[in-house]
Computed example of a mutant assay.
Amino acid sequence: MIDVLKNTPRVALIGCGAWGKNLARNFAELGALTGVCDTDTRKAKVIALEHKIEAIDEDQVFTHPNVDAVVISSLAPLHASQAERALKAGKHVYIEKPMALSVKDAQNLCALAKDRKRVLMVGHLLQYHPAFMALKERLSELGPLKHIYATRLALGRFRRQEGVLWDLASHDISLILALAQSKPKTIEAVGQAFLTPGKPASALLTLTFPNNLTAHIHASWLSPFKEQKLVVIGEKGIAVFDDRKPLAEKLLISKDCFEWEEDQPQANDGFKSSAVLLPEFEPLRHECLHFLTCIQEGTEPLTSGEEGLRVTEVLEAAEKSLQEKFVKPGGCSK
């Protein structure tokens, strides 16, 4: 993988929080970071000093002549308005997930990017993970896909601006849509919102697709243990992407899991599992480099604005389903 680009686009970062620091480091190491800003100016100054760049205010991000692209890692409710302002200023835009908190805002950003001929990319990081990239390459080994389930569990970090699906499930929806290669036919969700009314901290999402493919996602801030797992089940095999495992064990493919006796399926206790050898690289570095390359070459990102819009459509439909079904304190459904 090439880590250095000629004539590297110049990037300004909005948001110097826990994840913003990682974005700053990667864009700085790629020679692209030219400025950072945060509502907490102390955070911005610390990162600016670390990478020997400017700490600037938000207005400068959009007007500075030495800024070609804006990377947005602020609070989720600010993503759409900041991205809109950047696109209208003629900047390319990378937005951390979720790209927006409504389909209307996501559509607006996609239309703006197309009109201004600017790259719009969404930070669906796991699409750039070596394990998921390898899974896509070997998907045919599983046969026709039948079911996918994902778990993304941890204790916290609790958010008030958006529910757990918007925070955690964005990644898994992005992966599942990439594997299904189609939009879901039905979307249903149920959740528990006892911490912040109307903002579930734990939720289950069910998707159905054409060709009898189904998917489930369990996202929760209420788990005492961490789990980040994607299981893909086909007629011929099962793939497990477990991001909590060491690199050598992150992607397992199991074959001959089922056998048939008199037209009845039976579990084969002697099934074989093998770990897939993966290249060692940081997914975020790959993602940041991809954004810069798309700007230089005028190509559409893997996780483009349109891809982000499809994820937002699922999330908004899930939110609507949640508002109808989430469990209120006392155990009664709305």
Rank of each mutant, 00 (worst) to 15 (best):
V4T: 14
L5I: 09
K6I: 12
P9G: 07
L13E: 02
I14Q: 02
I14K: 08
C16R: 00
G17K: 05
A18G: 07
A18E: 15
W19T: 14
N22E: 15
N26C: 13
F27H: 04
F27A: 02
F27T: 02
L30K: 01
L33R: 02
G35Y: 02
T39L: 15
T41M: 08
K43V: 05
K43R: 15
K43C: 00
K43E: 08
I47P: 00
L49P: 04
A55D: 12
I56D: 00
E58C: 08
P65W: 08
V67N: 09
A69P: 09
A69Y: 11
V70I: 12
Q82M: 13
E84Q: 14
R85Y: 04
K88A: 08
V93A: 01
Y94K: 02
A100E: 05
S102D: 03
S102C: 04
V103I: 15
V103S: 09
D105F: 01
A106D: 02
Q107F: 06
N108Y: 08
K117S: 15
K117V: 05
V119T: 13
L120W: 03
V122S: 12
G123E: 00
H129V: 04
A134F: 04
A134K: 09
L135R: 01
S140N: 13
S140F: 11
G143W: 02
G143R: 06
G143H: 02
P144W: 10
H147E: 09
L153R: 10
F158T: 01
F158V: 11
V164A: 05
D167R: 00
D167L: 00
A169M: 07
D172V: 04
A178V: 04
L179C: 08
G191Q: 04
G191F: 09
P197V: 06
S202D: 08
L204V: 11
L204I: 11
T208N: 12
N211T: 13
N212M: 12
T214P: 00
H216L: 14
H218R: 03
A219D: 00
P224Q: 01
P224G: 05
F225N: 13
E227M: 15
E227H: 13
V231C: 05
G234N: 06
E235I: 12
K236V: 09
I238H: 00
V240S: 12
D242S: 10
R244H: 13
A248S: 15
S254W: 05
F258M: 15
D263Y: 11
Q266W: 11
N268D: 08
D269Q: 14
K272S: 13
S273E: 12
L277R: 13
L278F: 10
P279I: 06
F281Q: 06
F281E: 07
P283F: 08
P283C: 09
R285E: 15
C294S: 15
I295G: 03
Q296D: 10
T299Q: 08
E300W: 03
T303R: 07
S304M: 09
G308K: 07
R310N: 15
V311L: 01
E313G: 06
E313P: 09
S321I: 07
L322I: 06
Q323V: 10
E324Y: 11
K328R: 15
G330S: 05
G331V: 12
K334R: 14
